[in-house]
């Protein structure tokens, strides 16, 4: 695929926060019976604007680093790019097969074996049963878990789990890889393998969006960087100007 792209236009994403109380039916019924005297809050939700009027254009070969404080909207942006969150305004268009590595435990069943989890996660990632079986050996080898693949996942360490998840997620012929901060998991050997695999992905004309607090990591993987602050995005800058963005805080 040569026309891999991410195009985000004027994206605004509001997050309704339904208080624990608002989830109780009684409260809502009570509201009906008192005839709206409780005022304007008809939906019972407080809205938080997680992203506001965000524009972003990425093309093949772009490796964007996202920086920003906790709660600045990095993860929300990644989730929106993965298609989980619907924009309230604006639009998101992603061309290319997306692989989101946002949560290592996604679709992981701790009591199932490594092999079963590879199958399950592969299915969730959009692979067919046949594709998974075809790639099983490669995934197994890359994960480096060997005989542990026949063991239940709950016996794995966090690093082993990371290896498996990373192996499956990147086994998908992904054009767009979304990652949230976790690449530092795993030992030195695995870091090296993961590094090579990521570079390989980018060479296949893919796009990487990586959110991280680690400046060194961003310099290693990214060629562009964007800063989010309270849901407002800075310009996309060259990675060499990372210090400027960090200093702008």
């Amino acid at each position: 695929m040569t026309d891999v792209s991410i195009k985000v236009t004027d994206l605004t994403l509001r997050f309704p926060v339904y208080g624990v109380d608002a989830k109780s039916l009684k409260k809502n019924l009570a509201r009906v019976t008192v005839g709206g005297r409780l005022g304007a809050s008809t939906t019972g939700a407080t809205e938080v604007t997680a992203l506001s009027h965000l524009n972003l254009n990425l093309r093949a070969g772009d490796r964007l680093g996202l920086i920003g404080h906790n709660g600045s909207g990095k993860t929300t942006l990644l989730r929106a790019l993965s298609g989980a969150y619907e924009p309230d305004e604006g639009q998101i268009e992603v061309r290319g097969r997306i692989a989101a590595l946002l949560d290592l435990s996604l679709g992981i069943d701790p009591s199932a074996t490594g092999v079963d989890n590879i199958r399950l996660r592969g299915r969730i990632a959009g692979m067919s049963s046949k594709e998974i079986e075809d790639k099983m050996d490669e995934i197994a080898e890359f994960s480096g878990l060997g005989p542990f693949l026949a063991m239940p996942m709950k016996t794995y360490s966090a690093g082993m789990q990371a290896r498996l998840a990373f192996a499956v997620a990147t086994a998908v012929e992904a054009d767009v890889l979304l990652m949230d901060e976790w690449i530092s998991v795993g030992d030195a050997d695995f870091q090296k393998l993961a590094h090579r695999r990521l570079l390989n992905l980018v060479e296949r004309a893919g796009i990487l969006v990586l959110s991280s607090h680690d400046a060194g990591l961003l310099r290693l993987y990214c060629n562009k960087v964007m800063r989010l602050e309270g849901g407002v995005a800075s310009e996309v800058k060259d990675i060499r100007r990372l210090d400027e963005l960090l200093a702008a805080a």
Binding site: A80, E86, D88, G90, Q91, I92, E93, V94, R95, G96
Partner: peptide, 11 residues
Amino acid sequence: SGQHMLRTGRR
């Protein structure tokens, strides 16, 4: 499709 995703605001 697996290749193209479009998400927009309410229309």
